[in-house]
Design a protein around this nucleic acid. Sequence first.
DNA 1: TGTGATTAGATAGTGTTGCTCTCCAATATT
DNA 2: AATATTGGAGAGCAACACTATCTAATCACA
Lengths: 206, 206
Amino acid sequence: MRISALAADAGLPVATVKYYLREGLLHAGTATSATQATYDAGHLRRLRLVRALLGPVGLSVQQARAVLQLVDEPGDDLYSTLGRAVSALPPAAAPPGDESDPYPRARAALTALGQVYDPDFPAVAQLEGALAAAESAGMPMSAERLAHYGRVLSDVAEFDLDRMPQEPRGAVEYTVLGTALYEPVLLALRRLAHQDAALRRLQRAE
Amino acid sequence: MRISALAADAGLPVATVKYYLREGLLHAGTATSATQATYDAGHLRRLRLVRALLGPVGLSVQQARAVLQLVDEPGDDLYSTLGRAVSALPPAAAPPGDESDPYPRARAALTALGQVYDPDFPAVAQLEGALAAAESAGMPMSAERLAHYGRVLSDVAEFDLDRMPQEPRGAVEYTVLGTALYEPVLLALRRLAHQDAALRRLQRAE
DNA sequence: TGTGATTAGATAGTGTTGCTCTCCAATATT
DNA sequence: AATATTGGAGAGCAACACTATCTAATCACA
């Protein structure tokens, strides 16, 4: 399969596929000569993944590259690999600032939830940023709401972990891609659940 | 309060505040002469909201303008106002395509969840896009996972609706800003819940 | 064996976005 | 009177995700 066929199968211009090659989102084909290379089904699959990450998931090329690199070569430490992958996903977190307590809102929230608080984990910074944004916009998260959300999402996490593959490689792919790909689903479902619940209440009131 | 004081309080360059004025994200101050206007605490609050939407929430200027306009002047129909607000929030949904069944994955999912399926509601298109992306990336959502997520998010929706203000204006603001501001929190909590659950399992195994 | 199409690889160009800078005359402030 | 600030408008800028162009090598077919 040559590059034009690959591009056609993926529904992309050849120039774009070349761009992804240059940017390291797609591994090179096997060269058959100085000006020819062939691509296989793996390249097509990867291309679809790249499009999903750049499109619906909303990653930038940089972020997508970071995520894909981790999936391709997870480190020895599964735990920190997952951490690094999460930090590559938006929303970008603000840098810590070197106070003694860089993430007070996140620390308070996690402590209240009875979860570990590890300031090195990137999602902590994301949580802090999100809580600070809500607060400065005049809609702070109440402790009650935080507790409820936390409980519900622990439930989701247990469900997901029950279905995580055993071998490290598969586990990384499952967690990283699952986070990237399923989060948009989660948000859409939240919005639809609101819509559905609102509709039900409206009908009940009639 | 003049523009330089406003900008200083918000921690922004004056040029940026002017830019937001031009873009319609911030309403003009009350003019006191041809070259002077004064701003009040409302402008500062709005500025903080704008920064939250453009930063952590990740909206573009266009999207933020759309959201803010709806909060400022909600239509008569609360229901459709909320719909329009949601469609202004990312992820952007693909246009329907004029087949008979434009959102097959979303329809199947919602039917299975026992929720209303209204193809005119923008979050349906978002759900379809997210499901299609997961599928084409090689990690389709199983019916089981969909059912579980759906159940959990209905729970969130009930919680949120129980706390929705009565009057229409407040309800719009609560729902629109709540969606924009709380979704990043939700995602961060999901990631942290995964981390926490993984850690617990690791410890249990030792 | 020629002849036109295709390719890898490199470089440059494009349109959009979110600011940022500069300039101006009019007004404030000191 | 001298200096600073403002509103308003326009241009400039860096980053981003492509997209287009070019070149020499190679291929595929007649």
